[in-house]
Amino acid sequence: MTNENESNIEKNAQPAPQSDTAETKAGETSHEEAVKNFEPLTVAYERLRHSTDSAELSEFARRPLPDRSNQAAFSRATALLEAVAGNRHTPVADRVFLATTMPFPNVLVKLSEDPDASVRQAVAANEDDKNWLVGRLTKDPVPQVRDHALRNKRTSWKMRLEGAQDPTADAETLDFLGSLGTEIEEGAPAVLASMVRRAVALNPNTSAQMLEKLANDPSEEVRNALAQR
């Protein structure tokens, strides 16, 4: 009886083999489903680029990016955001969100060509822009877009000078440009900043308040330009 009882105890103590088998099969099934549902990057890009599902596009636009440490997933997500940004079925609010928050040139270039001026304006104000992209937006047909681009710290001095010479520039933007090198960006190159302020002094849209400031400008060139006016 003792031997028989010990044999029964040993049998009961052994783990059931079928549970491990079930877990293994579940893992294999999950992996197979993941592989089956995976979209190659080019396929996913084209699907999102031509999608008319605004809800899906909106969700993707607002989805947090993968951690940069996962380089493959991060690169894939930023590439697909380009497709979402360029799709006109992506809601305008989401395109503005991307234009405001994204630092990626491929996404911002798409958004800089958006037919909605509010999207281009958000790109123009994005300080993660490349200077050539901001420079392009200083020539935008919509004044508000041009103004935001000219006030962007990424804008080149050449673009700032051309903006200060623009007879369609508004007084607010000219107030900004007329303060460069004195009240704003005090460490700016003196000659370049003086050239911009001189152009502001000659611009017919410059406010009376800014003209008063320029009358006492530290640069003789600026003061002489104001006298010529």
Rank of each mutant, 00 (worst) to 15 (best):
G163V: 11
E33P: 06
D114N: 15
K158G: 15
T168N: 13
L108T: 05
L214S: 00
A117P: 07
Q144I: 08
S156F: 09
G163Q: 08
T100K: 12
R198E: 07
E4A: 10
V222A: 05
Q144V: 11
A201R: 03
A208S: 12
S51K: 01
Q144G: 08
W132G: 15
R76H: 00
P189G: 03
Q71C: 04
K213R: 13
S54I: 02
A26E: 13
K36V: 14
P115G: 05
M195Q: 13
V43M: 03
K213C: 04
V84H: 00
V119H: 06
T100L: 10
V43C: 04
T52D: 14
E28F: 09
G27P: 06
V109S: 04
M210S: 12
T21Y: 11
L214F: 00
S69T: 06
G178Y: 01
S7I: 09
K36E: 12
E32V: 07
A73R: 06
Q165G: 09
R68C: 01
F74D: 00
S156Y: 08
R160E: 14
P204R: 00
V123E: 11
T206W: 05
A149R: 05
V119D: 10
N205L: 03
A201T: 05
A61I: 04
V43A: 11
A199Q: 05
A77R: 10
L81W: 00
R229M: 11
S112Y: 12
D53W: 01
